[in-house]
């Protein structure tokens, strides 16, 4: 009895800032869109985020950060995903970033950046369009 696979998404906040308003709002919006959202709260290190993403077998990681430490944490997360052969997990970022940083973040493999003011419906639409549940494992 195979069913549609459900999207699993990790919402994580790297860095030391505790402004979780955006992360909580998006987690709820994803739940209401029918996704399974793993939420790990604030102050996550890149190592913790990647370990969680793998154990939870998520299809996507949404990173929310407002502290300006994205220049360190985002590339580090991508590097760790590659080291763990988990680069098939889509990573998106939410927050506010200097404009010149955005191409750099995309260069290291962040698929999309959503800034404050992005509509929840647009973000959900983007996810539906761009993130597909992984293939099943085979023997």
């Amino acid at each position: 009895m195979e069913k549609d696979r459900k999207l699993r998404i990790l919402i994580a906040k790297p860095g030391l800032d505790g402004h979780d308003r955006g992360a909580r709002v998006i987690a709820r919006a994803f739940r209401d869109a029918g996704f399974e959202v793993v939420y790990t709260g604030c102050h996550q290190t890149p190592e913790q985020i990647v370990s969680t993403a793998i154990q939870e077998d998520v299809d996507m990681v949404g990173l929310s950060i407002l502290s300006g430490a994205h220049t360190y944490s985002f590339p580090r997360i991508m590097e760790l995903l590659r080291e763990n052969r988990a680069e098939d997990i889509t990573v998106i970022g939410g927050g506010i970033f200097p404009l010149e940083d955005i191409p750099k973040l995309k260069d290291v493999g962040i698929k999309e950046i959503f800034e404050p003011g992005a509509k929840l419906q647009d973000i959900i639409g983007w996810v539906r369009e761009n993130v597909k549940p992984r293939e099943a494992v085979s023997l």
Binding site: L16, S67, G68
Partner: peptide
């Protein structure tokens, strides 16, 4: 280790 990338930013 937890402070990486944060110094003086905010």
């Amino acid at each position: 280790q937890l402070a990486r990338g944060e110094c003086g930013k905010c």
